[in-house]
Design a protein around this nucleic acid. Sequence first.
DNA 1: TAGTGGTCTAGACCACGGC
DNA 2: CCGTGGTCTAGACCACTAC
Lengths: 250, 250
Amino acid sequence: MARQEPSSARTPMHMIISEKLRKQIQNGVYAPGDQLPSEFDLGRTFGVSRTTVRRAIATLTGLGLVTTQQGKGVFVKPQSKISFSLANPLTFFDSELAKQGVTSSLQTLQYELTQPDPEIRARLKLPESEAMIYLQEKLILADEMPIAVDLAYFPEIVGIALKDNVNNGFTYRTLAISGYDIESAEVSLESRPASYNVRDLLDVPLGSPLLVYHYLAWDKEKVPLVYGETISRADRTFYSVGLERSQLGF
Amino acid sequence: MARQEPSSARTPMHMIISEKLRKQIQNGVYAPGDQLPSEFDLGRTFGVSRTTVRRAIATLTGLGLVTTQQGKGVFVKPQSKISFSLANPLTFFDSELAKQGVTSSLQTLQYELTQPDPEIRARLKLPESEAMIYLQEKLILADEMPIAVDLAYFPEIVGIALKDNVNNGFTYRTLAISGYDIESAEVSLESRPASYNVRDLLDVPLGSPLLVYHYLAWDKEKVPLVYGETISRADRTFYSVGLERSQLGF
DNA sequence: TAGTGGTCTAGACCACGGC
DNA sequence: CCGTGGTCTAGACCACTAC
């Protein structure tokens, strides 16, 4: 039942197909928002089974070029990205996004006292193993679409003070209002594939790349005030910052 | 020929299988470096076809948890990441990586005069459309394995001055030696899926996440000295930086 | 030579969207 | 209702690795 050409061409058919479609998308043959031919049609035009076409489409999905919608078809994805500030991505994020022509909003999903993971406890330098923390979970929307989730962990004392201001503005600003002044911070950025938890919140396929911004902030006495992670869709966001001579590493 | 249970369970078999394996990997049932059962065996134990097993394995590959090796098997990937400095990732990168217990080296793939893309020309603010630039392409190795590619674009005058020092140290330091002092810079970070070009250089599967670090540096007169991109394997690297109060956005 | 993953087929049923 | 993508099968051949 299986048939395979004498492998005159070394490159597999699914790759030939995905490359052809990729170039057509890049060259504007299919514009953002356009629908690709159906899997059945593609199979007929390339003379391959539907399985092979699906393999090619899966590649394009992995490259972030198309999305599939059951019952409708395969569509070319728009590509624009939103900029976050690396020095402080989420303070004033609303005005910053407005500058980029994007309407934004915040949604606090939860704010609760809970027991921290050992890892979180270590980062916040909490000595006792029974110490509790406040967890704030927020959803960041741009143009009505969720683009990021923020998880912030506060030591209990800090968290109590924040309680009333939780819905105003954002982390660093909220801290300042409550009388906690940040003196320094350590931030880092990594990329991670989407797992099941965030997949639903951010409406992305499993395994698609996410940007994870970690932040740890201290007061004058080097006491940790907050640790957090902002998890954003890598296909919709990037981080940037300007650096002066004194800040460069030489 | 096709058989499908009455869909008592709503979740597809390939997802059940990938989730089961994912949890086993997370719980250490399969440690880093371990080999998973063969596709044939997994199909037998789960009572599904090999195609379905392969679909599950593809998910795990997308999550960065396993790698497949033709003729050998499926293996659990080790997970450690190397830190780059965000303020200046590639100056002194050797000593920085040594601190992390990693031996590193640099390999200049090419250094040549060429005609820039319109995008590069715009970033370097080159007025004439016939202006040429120097392109430096470098491979960064950690523990003998390629983890990043760096593409640096220099205006012609700058590039000539650099010619003799190209193999010493790295971009910013090389510039300083040649008498070009950087006064300020704008850097940004994004994540992008691996395309065919970098796939071979970095030895990663197509579509796996990459971190892309963009840098644009100017002298005192705000004349661009270099624009570049450092493209690194997201499963092997992250970026971090310390910030003082004055640098925070408030 | 045996065992592994990589590619591919022809056909089935299911779930969803829109007419 | 039909057309779309989502899931799945049983079996084939190829390419690579190891013994």
